[in-house]
Design a binder for these strands. Structure first.
Length: 314
DNA sequence: CGTTTTTGACCCGCGC
DNA sequence: GCGCGGGTCAAAAACG
């Protein structure tokens, strides 16, 4: 096999170093069917091609490795800065929330909302009708006993369905448009067992329509219908629960904290959580490495640069 | 044909 | 007592 590389229309700028731009080099092409998992020959050929190029130029390999190492360092520093900015923004948000809640307490509400204190604590993405309840009401005391819990799920905003796949079987018995949220609220009952008292309310967040807010009420009185682990989706974290609510997902950036706080509030066992940066890096790495097109294009860019060095030296 | 979803009507608690 | 708004019911429609 020879180590020739053909031209390809692919053109991805992967160079984060502004002084070292890829488009300074001639566009090259890669033969193959990227992303087609049924035909692995294309990608394998690219890897072989790159390996052939690199093996011919050990010095070049070292140079390239050094450059990538420095870029990696830069990226790490950038990530640290982003993390610091995030922390600063979060503390500012906390201050804002605190001042907002103080002003809400000082101004009387027109109508006493239903719900319990739980929502007040965890309800950043909850509805306003579920927050700021008064103490002392017998109904609310009953609700507090009823094991109410809220989860937040990332959902496709274009998908209008209010379906939360949590592994249990639900029967929808109502849907309502509430006053303070344009998106409808769906009411579900657990249909796995006829006598199961668990109810679920699902509604999109007012602030972010891509967030589904699901409120669970009650406790399943039947054996778990073996909810599939991870059925909440990729970005959700399975949390061992002590009650009927098996999942306490942590989604997105600020939702991580909110989700976990809600877990703690519902007496769910304490959970070790990786740092935000770690989560971000892992998710990015996972997404990129699973994308065969990306890896193929990455290989294409690297090989084109190597070839260019080769030509320049000659 | 059984199950699930839709949707308008009704019920009930709360604030005024 | 009345009106508002959330929650539930139940008949009809849709679905598999």
């Amino acid at each position: 096999m020879d180590c020739s590389i053909e031209d390809t229309p692919l053109n991805i700028d992967l160079n984060v170093n502004p002084s070292h731009r890829i488009d300074e080099y001639p566009k090259t092409e890669l033969r193959g069917d990227f992303g087609d998992e049924g035909k692995p020959t294309g990608r394998q050929e690219e890897i072989l091609t790159i390996w052939c190029s690199l093996s011919k130029q050990p010095d070049l390999l070292i140079t390239e490795l050094n450059r990538m190492s420095s870029e990696n360092k830069q990226l790490t520093e950038l990530l640290a800065i982003v993390g610091e900015n995030y922390s600063a923004m979060r503390s500012q948000l906390a201050k804002l929330k605190q001042s907002n809640s103080e002003s809400e307490l000082s101004s009387p509400r027109k109508r006493k909302p239903r719900g319990d204190d739980y929502f007040h604590v965890t309800g950043r993405y909850g509805n306003t009708d579920n927050c700021c309840s008064d103490e002392g009401s017998s109904k609310r005391a009953k609700e507090a006993k009823a094991n109410v819990s809220t989860i937040y799920l990332r959902a496709d905003p274009s998908d209008k369905s209010l379906v939360v796949k949590d592994g249990y079987q639900w029967r929808k018995y109502g849907q309502k448009v509430t006053r303070d949220n344009p998106s409808p609220r769906a009411y579900y009952k657990c249909s796995y067992a006829p006598t199961c008292p668990v109810k679920k309310k699902v509604q999109r967040s007012v602030e972010d329509p891509s967030i589904l807010v699901a409120s669970y009420e009650g406790e399943h009185n039947h054996n778990n219908s073996s909810p599939a682990q991870g059925s909440f989706g990729l970005s959700q974290v399975l949390v061992p629960g002590s009650n009927s609510l098996p999942y306490c997902p942590t989604i997105g950036l600020d939702l991580v904290e909110t989700g976990l706080r809600s877990c703690a509030k519902t007496s769910v066992a304490e959970v070790k959580v990786p740092s935000l940066q770690q989560i971000l890096v892992e998710q990015m790495a996972s997404t990129l490495t699973r994308n065969s097109s990306f890896t193929a294009e990455l290989a294409a860019v690297i090989s084109s640069k190597i070839l260019d060095y080769d030509l320049a030296e000659k």
